[in-house]
Each structure stands twice: as C-alpha cells, then as structure tokens.
Amino acid sequence: MDPEARQPILSLRGISKYFGGVHALENVDFEVYPQEIVALVGDNGAGKSTLIKIVAGVYQPTKGEIYFMDRPVEIHSPHDAQNLGIETVYQELALIETRDVPANFFLGREPVRGRLGIFVDRKKMVEDTVRTLKDLGIVLPHLRTLVRYLSGGQRQALAIGRVMPWGGKVIIMDEPTAALGVRESRKVLDLILQLKEKGCSVIVVSHNMRHVFNVADRIVVLRGGKKVGDKKKNETTPDEIVKLIVGAEML
C-alpha cells in the first residue's frame, strides 16, 4: 500500500447503537484507509447492516464519533453521506422496479435544467447513464426498459453502476453478490477491484468467504454487535475468520 495511506479516510470511534433495549452495536471502532477494500463479515444479527447504515446516514449512532478525512462529521441523512463522498449499494438493491434505467440511475438526485430548477434534465440523464455504463462495460437492454424486466445480474450492475459517477471516496456494498450466479458474481468482484484502482475505498459486506478472500485487503469481523477481529488478508485464513464469526468456543 502506498505510504500516504497511513491516515484512515473514514474512522468510526466507539460507535454504539441501541434500538430500545437491543444493543445492535457496542463500542465498535472501524477504519477504512484510502484505496483499501475492507470486508465486513459476521453472522446474521452481528451488526453489519447497522454499522453500514450509520455510515450511510440512515441511522444515527447512540454513542461514538465519526471522522471523515480527519474531520469530525455528523451524518444525519443519506444526502449528508453523499455530500461527504460516501456512496452506498444496498442489499435490497434499492431500485424502483416501475421506473426505467436512467430514472433509477439518478434516483433522488436528478439533474435539473432551466431557471426554475424544477424540470428534470432528461437528456443529460440518458447521456450520463449511457457513458457510465459503457465505461464500466455494463451491458443492459435498452435504457427505457423498466427495472422490472431486468435480470438479477443486470439490476446489480445498475445498482453498483449508479454510484460511480458521483466521485465517491468510500463506496459501501451490502451483500453485492448474494443474489447472483457465478459469472455475475465474478463481474461484480471485478467492478469492486476496478473501483479500488480508480482510487476509491470499498466496504464490502459479504457472507461468501471465497469472494471476501478474492477482493479484500482487510477483514473486520463483528459478533453480537462487537468487533472481534480485524485482520489483514495475507495474515489470516478463511478458517480463522470463520472461527471468529461463530465464536471460537463453539468449535
């Protein structure tokens, strides 16, 4: 890794999140360095989704601080996160099935034209969508196709592709390969590596050890809302990670 990568781009310190009496996260520290792919692993209910939703601005932490590029920040909404340069690809894909490709590509931040600033610049939407998809080598049917008619892989490609043009410095991906076949998964993993080459940092939540060890530089393990492991990939093994996920005492 290059020398200036010493300073983390994103740093969570002592993050706790309580939902009523449920402690979803308990005093978790989490860093992401520039141009690094961090895998976030753990069993169901370990707190992975809660952690990334805090970074994405969907939840606010009960306790703890977030630093972005060494500045303390508060992320109150998805827009706050996007403005900082944090983009998220959700597990549920978060696409609107009843809308076409460009409408989903620009969901929530449609470009406007004219003095009133209320009319959507459809031409720019279509052009930018075509350009980004071509740059990434993503193949979709005609852009006017509703997302309803796209396959699982095409939807995933769209969900990932649409975070690309915004110059995000940190990209969060929640289970990006969960619903995909072998070939489509390969494509998504390639996209993640491409992102890293372009200078982004990526947080990948995944259950698939093969995929994790394929792309990640570092692996962070959560269990019961606490961080129980933080290993560089080349200093650990899938076996060790699995033991951390389920709790070593159980084996």
């Binding site: 994405a56 969907v58 909404s77 998805p78 827009h79 996007q82 998220t88 959700y90 549920e92 894909l93 978060a94 696409l95 609107i96 099935e97 009843t98 809308r99 409408a103 969901l107 929530g108 931040r109 449609e110 406007v112 209320i118 009319f119 959507v120 459809r122």
Partner: peptide
C-alpha cells in the same frame, strides 16, 4: 418532467428505496 414527479413515482414504486436515496 419535474423532479417532484420523478420522486412521486419513486415513492409509490418503492418507498423504502426512495427513502434510502435521500
């Protein structure tokens, strides 16, 4: 043609996703 219209379709199509998109 308007941003509000796009958001109206988005909320009706998938309210959860629309919320996540800000």
């Amino acid at each position: 043609r308007t941003k509000l219209g796009y958001h109206t379709y988005a909320v009706g199509g998938n309210e959860y996703a629309a919320g996540l998109a800000g």
